[in-house]
Amino acid sequence: MPTIVDIAVNNDNFKTLVTAVTVANLVEVLKSPGPFTVFAPTDQAFAKLPPGTITTLVQNIPQLSRILTYHVVPGKLMKSDLEKVNSVISVEGSPISIDCSDNFEVKNATVIMADIEADNGVIHVIDNVILMG
């Protein structure tokens, strides 16, 4: 099976994400055995961010990687696992709230495609970049 990185690279919807992960030197990490659960924002999600946000982040790698690691949770958590909890702790350290009552919502993002399994984890595609706080 492909790794999380492979899936992302091969999908046209994750160009920004892939660039960001590459710039932040997280490729190796995400290729490692893990396993990880990744909430992957689509390109449209990144585009929703106000102008300048990405520029600043790309200029400051540690800060960028902090945002990115907030989208990663240790362990392989499928939608069915996430339905049982209210929140999970991200690699960054801050909690991510999960709401599965109506839609499958992660913080203020909605999961548009859940449970894309990879070799070293699972990807849930979300329509918003989620932020700590």
Binding site: L49, P50, P51, G52, T53, T55, T56, L57, N60, P62, Q63, L64, I67
Partner: peptide
């Protein structure tokens, strides 16, 4: 201001 806050949010 809101846009400014976002633009600069990642400043180390």
């Amino acid at each position: 201001l809101v846009n400014g806050i976002f633009a600069i949010a990642g400043r180390p």
